[in-house]
Amino acid sequence: MKLYHFPLSPNSRRVVAVLHHLRLDCELEAVDLSKGEQMQPDFLKLNPNHMIPTLVDGDFVLWESNAIMQYLCSKAPYTSLYSTDARVQADINRWQFWQAAHFGSACSVMIFEKVVKKFFMQAEADLQEVAKGEERFHRFAQVLEQHLKGRDWLVGNDVTLADFSVGSFLALAELAEYPMAPYSEIPRWYGNIEQLPAWISSAPPAG
């Protein structure tokens, strides 16, 4: 298998973390978004959306990070990351879909305005867009905060794909200046993720 990824991307990091957690053999190939490498013809043949991550497994090509994570779990049957129990699996799916549709999109606004513009475009943040992102962040962070009360993990008693999916965006919380002050459960829970060996080893290189 080969995974095309961008190390700083939350979408990429959670897939790499799952690879490490499951101890799967996979070649990692970085695609430098800052240089437009995702627009190269060879990559567009794999992913016409020109986005990362993208997994190639023989003649099978798969994009969308949450789908890739679920597929990887099929390589390691009986993993607790993605239960075979229909209700538990549906609950994991629910949080992955929620991340993709709501929480991740809110965080992405602040990542673009405070990180991408600053470090890759040498541009100033649009404060109106930041305000919209913060408003949306609070809407969904409150949902996450309430759910986490009395819980170490999002689903059940152990880490699952749900934790990697939702938690991946918190790795950039400080850099993107998320408005985290009102929340205590979210950083407590993310602290559990930060202690996982797979999460530690999936961190992008310093510098």
Rank of each mutant, 00 (worst) to 15 (best):
L28N: 04
P197H: 13
K45L: 10
F164T: 04
R13K: 13
H20M: 07
Q89P: 00
R151L: 07
G150M: 09
H21T: 10
D32Y: 08
S184G: 09
L62E: 07
L55H: 05
S165W: 13
A131I: 07
S80P: 10
L46M: 08
A100L: 14
H50G: 13
D32S: 03
V116M: 02
V155I: 08
Y183C: 14
V88M: 10
L62G: 04
R139A: 11
E145S: 04
V159I: 15
P7C: 11
V130I: 13
Q96I: 15
F6E: 08
V16D: 00
Q96V: 15
K132T: 15
R13M: 14
S105D: 12
G36W: 03
A86K: 08
N192W: 14
A171M: 12
Q70P: 04
D163C: 09
T54K: 02
C26N: 08
A203I: 04
E194C: 15
D91N: 11
S9M: 11
V115K: 00
S80W: 11
L55N: 03
D126V: 13
G207I: 14
I68L: 05
E174C: 08
S165P: 10
V88G: 00
S65W: 08
P41N: 09
L46F: 08
S12F: 12
V31Q: 03
V115N: 00
G58P: 01
R14E: 08
L8V: 15
L175P: 02
I186Q: 06
F119I: 15
E27S: 05
A198S: 12
G150C: 12
R136Q: 03
S9F: 10
F103H: 12
D152K: 14
N192G: 04
